[in-house]
Design a binder for these strands. Sequence first.
RNA 1: GCCCGGGUAGUGUAGUGGCCUAUCAUGAUUGCCUGUCACGCAAUCGACUCGGAUUCGAAUUCCGACCCGGGCGCCA
Length: 430
Amino acid sequence: MRIPIQSVTPETGHAEICGFVHEVRDLGGLAFFLIRDRTGILQVTIPKKKVSEAVLAAAKAVSRESVVRISGPIKAVEKAPGGRELVPETFEIISLAESPLPLDVSEKVSAELDTRLDARFLDVRRPRVAAVFAIRSAAMHAINNYLHHEGFLSITTPKIVAAATEGGTELFPIAYFDKEAYLNQSPQLFKQMMMAAGCEKVYEIGPIFRAEEHNTTKHLNEATSIDIEVSYADHTEVMRILEEVIVKTYEYVDKTCSSHLANMEITDFAVPKGPFPRLPYSEAIKIAKKKIEDPIKYGDDIGSAAERAIGAEMGGHYFIVDWPTEIRPYYAMPYENDPTICKAFDLMHPRMELASGAQRVHNHDQLVQQIAKKGLNPESFDFYLRPFRYGMPPHAGWGLGADRLIMTMLNLSNVREAVLFPRDMHRLVP
RNA sequence: GCCCGGGUAGUGUAGUGGCCUAUCAUGAUUGCCUGUCACGCAAUCGACUCGGAUUCGAAUUCCGACCCGGGCGCCA
């Protein structure tokens, strides 16, 4: 029976392990093999005069990163890494790795991201890369867990849709039998329909697609979005939930991922403290005006230079609230006492935007008006508008970029590092 | 979409007109080595993205193609 390397101790006695050949050091009469599985690395020591012919032959034939099964007694040896080593009675090559390897798994020589993504299966064998995805998995678990306990209904909505939903963003057209269809840019409209369906609290974690030809370290053409929608809630209530999601996720990672964080050499992992500051858009503009060269005025979008300047000033997670209605989507609810601003918000990390949300317009006629005001044709929103005619609760929600959440949490320099098989303008394979 | 920068052994790099039969590291192959832990030592192998131009001479300059990285805009 195979046992994980992590559980191999001097007390184990006899053990069978399976894994990849991480490194080989042949000293002549004595050879050391480092065998790596998901849980760790074990030294296999071969005194050439004492082991069988078969073991010797296999040890000579094997290449780095081959898959092997090795069994033998475990000895407590102070000189060995981890204080224990295995002297093989059997040494089976299950799958011989070709040589040379497309990249150096042992990390003596670095590889560029592009090279790594081309051979992602090898890249992820590196403990520091595997750690990213272990942490991502833990973070997603924490989010699912939190939302489940808060009474949210987990939903899945179509990714193949008939029409543009929000306008602005470019969509990927696809051939859908004899019709034209698109990949969905956001579950926004479907979440809202679920409010009309009486589900009150829903969330979805799923892919979103944007056909923008951007070329940056924080954009993907296929991203993972964490989306919620809540009935009878306003923007302040869903901001509170978002804040909780962030804090709980960091807490869970902090509590359960110490070895993965160590593999990534992260020693200063800090759980952000809520509540996050609520910075009105107008104040954000004032900060940006003072700190950046380029002219920026009330009513402008906040560009990346401004985003960084404001982030540096705020020093941690924060919300930008009370946005001008004009620069937010049609479904954002204007304030009753000042319709020039609306109940929309962005959640910001000092490095970039993580999430955006709003209380939504739930009145049918007001929504039609706002769609028209944005220069969009209300007729093409028929399927979306219909639920608003048969009793729609007031509601609010947000979408949080999962990839950016992981990127900022682990201080990764490129969002592609947080995605197993990223899709960007140039990459469709693997 | 606009604007920069770049493509040299499997990988990561040095090389700004001749000193390049191309540097270094890692790797691979072979040999020596019984306590390595980025093992050590020795030998060997392995590369200038493609096409055109300039030049006596091009990895190096110019043009085009292809590929890659980054910034901006927009966004999550």
